[in-house]
Simulated assay, not measured.
Amino acid sequence: MSKSFIIRDHERGHDTIRSDGTRSSYIAGHPDGFVTRASSFNFHDYQSGRPGFGPVRVFGDEIFHGAGCGYNMHPHHNFVICAFVFEGQLTHINTAGEGMVDQLRAGDYYVFSAGSGGKHSELSVTSEDMHAIYLWLMPRQLFLPPTYHRAHFDYRRRRNTIVQLVGDADTALPIPQDLRVSRLMADAGRSFTYTLRSRGHGAYIFVREGSATVDGVALGRRDSAGFSDRDDPAITIDIGEDDSDIIVVETIMIDDDNIKAWEHDHAGH
């Protein structure tokens, strides 16, 4: 039987995190600066919202407010973290390979696989707010060597096309999981079809800006829907009256018991 769910903007977990008290070692910047986070999924006590989708544990829509705001250097292991920047400038420092200091601006995105162990820091060093979406997922294989890849999405040249940013397409960033992230910048009134790889795959569709009717479900700005176990792999996306920016995360679906066992063994992420 086909499964689906809807998460309206107000139903996401909404948090404001300041650099003060016990948080100051993790949240960077002056206490006047702060991070706002709207979470579609959760992982233990990290973020609030609906339990994960397949191997996806976090889908965080975040804004860093204030110069120097962000996350201080902190460790991860056996997690894959993707960031997609929409506004401002993100300075990302990580320990993959020989180390990397990267500056990402609107349209830039990265895939950081912590694997056997790595650290990273996320900072907005200018006074301009930085807006990004963070995606965390479990890898297909544990204890892989840490890796980092980055690229740029040029919406002016890729408009009205579902463009795979992460996954197995020739121009996509590689990721150690059966998962794809695509972006659609579309004109009002257009119609598109996203086709899942198999019945064992699902899709989480997030309307970042604008509106769309997805498989008959009307979604507004920051609304989202998930679909899985479908007989028909084709998902229709009808853009509403405004130009729209839509993120599609397609992933293999994982048995819930396996997810719970994995979370128990990786509670420290």
Score class of each variant (00 low, 15 high):
F5P: 05
D9N: 15
E11T: 13
R12A: 00
I17F: 08
S19Q: 04
R23Y: 15
S25F: 11
Y26N: 03
D32A: 02
F34Y: 08
S48T: 11
S48E: 08
G52M: 07
V58H: 00
G60K: 08
I63L: 07
I63G: 02
F64C: 07
V80W: 03
F84C: 06
G88F: 05
T95S: 14
T95P: 02
E98T: 11
L104W: 01
F112S: 12
S116P: 04
G117I: 07
G118N: 06
E122Q: 02
L123C: 00
S124E: 10
D129H: 09
M130G: 00
A132E: 07
L137C: 10
M138A: 05
Y148K: 04
R150C: 05
A151E: 10
A151G: 07
Y155S: 14
T161W: 04
V166C: 10
D168Y: 00
D170V: 03
D170K: 07
Q177I: 08
D187S: 10
R190Q: 12
T195H: 06
G200K: 12
G202Q: 12
V207Q: 00
G210E: 02
A212M: 04
T213H: 01
T213L: 02
V214K: 13
G216I: 03
A218P: 00
G220Q: 04
R221C: 15
A225Y: 08
D229H: 15
R230E: 12
D231T: 13
T236F: 05
I237G: 06
D242I: 13
I246H: 03
E250V: 02
M253V: 05
N258E: 14
K260W: 02
K260Q: 10
W262K: 06
A267C: 08
G268W: 13
G268N: 13
